[in-house]
Amino acid sequence: MTSGWVFEEAAIVFVSILAGIIFFYISSPSVKHEKKQQLEEGTSLIINFVLFIWAGKIVLNIHIFVTDPLAVLAYPSDAHAFYMAVLLLLVNIVYKATRKQMYVGTVLSALVPIFLGSAFLYEFIEAVWNDNTMSWSHMGLLFILLILFLIRYEQIRPFTMTALIFTIWSLGQTILTFILPYTTLYGYMMSLWFLILVFTISLIALIYNKRKVT
């Protein structure tokens, strides 16, 4: 029963990310070779993020993994594995950027639309297919962000757009925590401290970048 649920969730996430990639490809104003590079960088980080979630799940349950690895791999990941994956992903981005292996603006140009498109479709599937009524609120927030992105993505630099999107998203999610019993992202329950941390970092990045530009 658990393995079937895990397979269904993995399938929903896969379809959602695929939809996010398609949304990026359609909405991106970049020329073909730039779009291909952005997509390659963004897809690479998404794959790493999925691997980081699995690695986090193993590390957090290492005592069980040593004796029964299949039990850990078959069991659904929790929010702590998600948080660890986010941290490792940020470390990965910083490492590549400092080593000049990746231009941050290139990957952010792909990650933001992929995130918005995939998260929106995930919540839509949860609301319609799985009859999860709490998904409507998050889907409404993501819909607003999608409209904002489509209206302003050609006028705002990738770094600024990323900071703006995640500032509004984390603030909206924080407000939802006081309205709903809980809020999620890709099925992972978001803690209030995590949302406040994302909001604080995104807001600081937004202010810093605005002052740097002006």
Results as ranks from 00 to 15, higher is better:
V86T: 11
E34T: 15
I64G: 06
K210E: 08
S118I: 02
T174H: 12
F82C: 06
R157H: 12
F194H: 10
I53K: 00
A11W: 13
L111E: 00
D78R: 05
F24A: 00
T162G: 05
Y25F: 11
W136C: 03
L121S: 02
I168T: 12
L45Q: 01
I201R: 01
L89M: 15
P113W: 05
L89Q: 13
T184S: 14
S118K: 01
I17S: 03
R157S: 12
Y153N: 15
L18Q: 06
E41L: 08
V128R: 02
A79F: 08
F7M: 14
I64L: 11
Y25G: 02
S109Y: 06
Q101M: 14
F178N: 11
W136A: 08
L176T: 08
L203K: 02
S109E: 04
L39N: 02
L45Y: 04
Y122E: 00
E154V: 12
I47G: 01
T214R: 15
L108F: 02
A97Q: 10
A205Y: 06
Y182V: 02
M134K: 12
T177G: 07
L176M: 15
I196S: 05
Q38D: 13
T43S: 02
P69K: 10
H63E: 14
H63M: 13
G105P: 00
V91H: 08
F65T: 09
T214P: 13
K100G: 04
I175N: 05
Y95M: 10
F120N: 01
E126H: 13
A55E: 12
L142T: 09
S77Q: 08
L164N: 04
S30R: 06
S30C: 14
A81K: 10
L180H: 10
V15A: 13
N130F: 10
I179Q: 14
V198W: 11
Y182I: 07
L121Y: 04
L108A: 09
V15T: 04
K212H: 07
I196T: 03
W5I: 15
I201G: 03
S44L: 04
L87P: 04
S109K: 00
R157M: 12
I93N: 01
R99F: 09
E126V: 11
K100M: 14
I144M: 10
Q101Y: 10
I21H: 03
Y25I: 06
